[in-house]
Design a protein around this nucleic acid. Structure first.
Length: 142
DNA sequence: TTTTTGACGTTAT
DNA sequence: AATAACGCCAAAA
């Protein structure tokens, strides 16, 4: 558990934000960081997920928090020390209807155009390549 | 206690 | 396009 109250509050905010990701959609560590008002700490979002309790009696645990819906900004499942964990994430995503594409180098990616969930994205970003969603509320697009 | 590590992302070369 | 440097900070070593 986090050593300070402030850290605990951060963990809490991260988990709450992740709970908002709709099933069958994905977003990024950076986006979660932005949503909770700390855009400079996407890395800490990863820390929170890494330490997500396996204890199912806790309010936030690996079963109640849809951690699998968080991937990196490249649109790929972040590799970690335990390769099986990434595989597990892919499996959980596929179980909710998300297509995970494996390329030649064992790298697993998800198409943001199809599954990305990015509410509150600034119009300037959306203007770029047609792949954006400037709406704060989206369920279906393209 | 100090140092290193790491489920990241943006900016600068 | 690809690589490096940096900011971030809780945990683990």
């Amino acid at each position: 558990m986090p050593r300070s109250e402030e850290a605990a509050a951060f963990f809490h905010a991260v988990y709450e934000a992740i709970l908002e990701i709709p099933p069958g959609r994905v977003t990024t560590y950076g986006h979660i960081a932005m949503l909770i008002g700390t855009p400079q700490r996407p890395r800490q979002v990863g820390v929170c997920l890494k330490h997500l309790p396996g204890d199912l009696t806790q309010r936030f645990n690996i079963d109640t928090v849809p951690w699998q819906r968080v991937i990196n900004s490249k649109g790929t499942i972040s590799p970690r020390s335990q390769p099986a964990a990434a595989q597990n994430q892919a499996t959980r995503l596929e179980a909710e209807g998300v297509t995970v594409r494996r390329d030649a180098m064992g790298e697993m990616s998800v198409d943001f155009d199809e599954y990305g969930w990015f509410p509150d994205v600034l119009p300037s970003e959306a203007a770029g390549g047609g792949a954006g969603n400037d709406d704060a509320d989206d369920d279906d697009e393209e």
